[in-house]
């Protein structure tokens, strides 16, 4: 029982990572009613992008504290590029097709991205090590917080606040809301819905990149398959929170993360099942 606070915190941290990814799912779904199965891979490419910056671009031995912002930017550039390209070439032509065609395309995109990284990124056939913060965590009462977690603690709420402000206060944000509610009317009102869709993809990708970096920091490694499971769970979170609702997505993520953490610890007789079972049982 004394583990409870720690597990809760772990759960919240895990959950906010899921939430960041879930936001991307929910934004795209809210605007074009597409379940972007490839979004998990966008998360993955964001992580790899950040890794690239650190390993190949910055001089060896750069302190992680300095490198981190650059890595985030690098990760975002990659993930946004991937998202925008897939939107432009894979999804946009199928805008008016019944929902199964874009779904299959998304599966194809997901597979392609996974394989591209696996085949072409140096050393990606196994996990790649991700730079870590040194030092042990510091303690807050019964809870230990790793340096890696601090990043998430800062980044996640910040991102949500940014998004909320963006959607509610800016012109583009309102245009996005309009497009989500009724694309045809929005177009008639003079909103460039194509641009809005691209922006939605981009924001989702940026958030996924942040999640990717935090994943790398937390677990110390990235591999080409990490997008798949994380994507699945994030999608569950998005649905949980009400698909199309960005705040719900984050909330759903948090709930899922906590549930998973607690379930892993407390469901003893089928521990193997907890990791996914926790997520999926939630739905029913």
């Amino acid at each position: 029982m004394h583990e409870l606070p720690q597990q809760l915190v772990n759960g919240l941290l895990l959950g906010s990572m899921y939430g960041l990814i879930a936001v991307g799912y929910t934004m795209v779904y809210g605007i074009i009613k597409l379940i972007n199965f490839a979004h998990g891979e966008i998360f993955m490419t964001g992580a790899f992008g950040a890794l690239t910056i650190y390993t190949y671009i910055l001089p060896n031995g750069t302190s992680l504290w300095i490198a981190l912002p650059l890595m985030i930017i690098g990760g975002m550039i990659v993930s946004i590029a991937v998202a925008v390209i897939t939107e432009r070439f894979a999804y946009r032509p199928l805008r008016n097709a019944p929902r199964l065609a874009p779904l299959i395309t998304a599966i194809g995109v997901s597979l392609t991205l996974q394989q591209l990284v696996w085949a072409f990124y140096p050393g990606a056939k196994k996990e790649r090590l991700f730079p870590q913060f040194g030092g042990s965590g510091f303690h807050l009462g019964a809870v230990t917080i790793q340096p890696a977690d601090i990043f998430l603690i800062v980044a996640a709420p910040l991102s949500m606040v940014f998004l909320a402000t963006f959607v509610m206060r800016t012109r583009t944000g309102r245009a996005m809301q309009a497009t989500a509610q009724d694309p045809d009317t929005a177009r008639l009102m003079g909103i460039d819905t194509e641009r809005i869709i691209v922006i939605a993809f981009a924001i989702g990708a940026a958030f996924a990149a942040i999640a990717g970096v935090s994943h790398g920091l937390r677990y110390g490694q990235v591999d080409f398959r990490m997008g798949f499971i994380a994507g699945l769970k994030a999608f569950t979170a998005a649905v949980l929170g009400g698909i199309g609702n960005i705040y719900g997505a984050m909330l759903g993520g948090l709930v899922l993360g906590v549930a998973e953490s607690l379930a892993a610890t407390y469901i003893q007789h089928i521990p193997g099942m907890s990791h996914f079972g926790g997520g999926a049982w939630q739905d029913v």
């Binding site: 699945l232 193997g272 996914f276 049982w281």
Partner: peptide
């Protein structure tokens, strides 16, 4: 509704696999 159905069936698919994997006398 349709999209929720998608997720839940996805979940059940995975549950089947994991459950069957765990009914091995040790964890189930």
């Amino acid at each position: 509704r349709g999209d929720y159905l998608a997720i839940v069936t996805l979940g059940f698919g995975e549950i089947f696999r994991i459950a069957v994997s765990n009914f091995d006398g040790v964890t189930g």
